[in-house]
Nucleic acid binder design. Structure first.
Lengths: 198, 198
DNA sequence: TTGCTTGTTGACCGTCGGTTGATAACCGTA
DNA sequence: TACGGTTATCAACCGACGGTCAACAAGCAA
């Protein structure tokens, strides 16, 4: 008689669909311009169902981007057999490639997603871990305050430069990579904290 | 008979009060944690009156900070009689002093910046103008792309380093200033774009 | 056909930024 | 002292947000 008024999917299938569509939407629109209602409408379900599968908008966002984060972690993992400088160079290349591939997503991420406390903490954590990775590679012991400040600033430099790069697209990726490397060295030099690299 | 249920102030007086209290509130709390209702309650008026004096929350916020912005502009205005390097040094000193004096406000500003569109645009504009000012001082013509990217990144570096500085407070202001100067030079060097300064 | 499981929904809540028409405080005047 | 006009002020409202909940119905097993 009556056709069903909605299609009933298995939990796994629905979940997969929501993560997939969510990734598409969240990477192509700023976080705060996407309401849960809009997402639900876009997918063709009710908002309540979204909240049945994810406890909050933030959590949904996080899960949605977890695949992306995993890729970031993997691809920027340095080759331990190489000398420190080369490790850094490789990681930077990988990072910039990822940014270039996902320019819009990166832009939206930096520009808007960080405003949500939990997400910002996530990004801060990535930055902090990256800083630690670099500092550990460069120093045996506790790094001096100026070096720590310099590295912290440099990571911000990276985001700023990447945004500018994406915006204008008038320099090569390798140029940007060398710029970033050079600035890092310059920063450590200016911090009177150039470690032994040779 | 009946005591008046509210006090009626002159436009100028009320306006001054709202700007004053607004400045206090906006510099001591993150932007998105302050609702217009809360502000109104805090001041002891209705929300509608707030909107009678200011067209929007953003505009209110901006006007509230305009005195601060004016101070920033004035105090960082370089002395044109000095050589470029000294101009920059002076501006940096002034900027860092201002940040140190208003550490909490600065922190709130930068932190809310990521997520709140209005603030982000405000800061982006300041960044852009500052970058232009620096580039104009350094180059006669249109700056090369790499230099532009480097400057843009450096401004982000500054914010990141300032936040780290405020957070830890374990280096001197002059040290940070020299670090920033050194990094700027390093960045321009890495961008193959060191201008004539001597 | 019935009944059970559970995926799914419409209606609701409090709060947000923002709007509007009525109200009442204050001042000039008589 | 009373009154009338100006306008500073407010209560009530709006649509949209993130989030919640009891109830419905799709699909399978009997």
């Amino acid at each position: 008689m009556n056709r069903p008024s909605y299609r009933r999917l298995g939990v796994d299938e629905r979940r997969r669909q929501l993560l997939e569509r969510g990734a598409e939407l969240f990477t192509s629109h700023p976080y705060d311009e996407l309401s849960m209602s809009k997402i639900a409408a876009e997918v063709g379900i009710s908002k309540a169902l979204l909240y049945h599968y994810f406890p909050s908008k933030q959590a949904y966002f996080e899960e949605t981007l977890s695949a992306w984060a995993e890729q970031l972690r993997e691809r920027t993992e340095p080759d331990p057999d190489l000398p420190p400088i080369e490790q850094l160079k490789g990681s930077l290349d990988a990072f910039l490639a990822l940014v270039e591939e996902n320019a819009i997503a990166y832009k939206n991420l930096i520009r808007s997603a960080a405003g949500v406390t939990e997400i910002r903490e996530l990004i801060d954590e990535v930055r902090l871990k990256t800083a630690q990775r670099i500092l550990e590679a460069l120093y045996a012991q506790e790094p001096p305050p100026k070096a720590r400040t310099a590295i912290s600033g440099w990571l911000w430099f990276m985001d700023g430069a990447c945004l500018n790069w994406i915006e204008h697209r008038d320099i090569e990726r390798t140029e940007l990579r060398d710029l970033l490397l050079g600035v890092l060295m310059g920063a450590l030099l200016a911090a009177d904290a150039v470690p032994d690299l040779a």
